[in-house]
């Protein structure tokens, strides 16, 4: 008799708790992006392919399927840390080297208008037509360097983006102080 009461009361308790939990799971459900989208949002979207995948999204997919998180040189350490945080893995050392940010520049006098770079550009940031001089839309260039190799005349140069007064990061120690008389 005593044991029956215990079983019934505990059972009821379990039922109630289960209902509450079930309700909470629906009521407080956190809507989250699929993991691939989240990874893709962290990647720098240079589409440079240095990770071995043709673009950032494919790499995001690969990471979601367990690939290493350290294959994105343009993103550098910052991206690795964020990915490590998101994926719950240990941050590892970057494969390849982190370069200062640069944009492509077409040397106009050397461009023969072959359109090869235009075809290589993953973000359509090169403007031009056959036999016409090409130029890079600096604002859209991701610095992926994919246009450099195809150029038959080696006329594309990666020019590091200079720091301006607008992008300066308030690093007082980096200022070289001139001797004044």
């Amino acid at each position: 008799m005593g044991i029956g009461v215990a079983i019934i009361s505990l059972g009821l308790l379990a039922l109630v708790a289960g209902l509450i939990l079930g309700y909470a799971a629906i009521r407080f459900k956190v809507k989250s992006d699929p993991i691939v989208e989240q990874i893709d949002a962290i990647l720098p979207q240079t589409q440079c392919g240095q990770c071995g995948y043709p673009g950032c999204k494919p790499y995001a997919n690969a990471i979601a399927n367990g690939d290493e998180i350290n294959k994105c040189p343009p993103g550098g350490e910052a991206v690795i840390l964020k990915l490590a945080d998101l994926m719950g893995v240990e941050p590892t050392k970057l494969e390849g080297e982190e370069k200062p940010k640069a944009v492509a520049f077409v040397h106009e006098d050397e461009c023969i208008g072959c359109t090869k770079c235009i075809q290589a550009c993953p973000v359509d940031a090169i403007l031009g037509a056959t036999r016409q001089m090409h130029t890079v839309i600096t604002d859209e260039c991701t610095g992926c360097e994919l246009c450099v190799a195809p150029c038959p005349t080696d006329c594309i140069e990666m020019i590091p983006v200079d720091e301006t007064t607008k992008t300066w990061q308030w690093d007082l120690n980096s200022i070289s102080i001139k001797e004044v008389q």
Binding site: P44, Q45, Q47, V123, A125, E140, T167, W168, Q169
Partner: peptide, 22 residues
Amino acid sequence: ADIRKQETEKKKAEIARIRHEA
């Protein structure tokens, strides 16, 4: 400055992504 920089980069990345997909 850091937040601004990251925001610009994020915006640029977003544009790059859209352009790439297009």
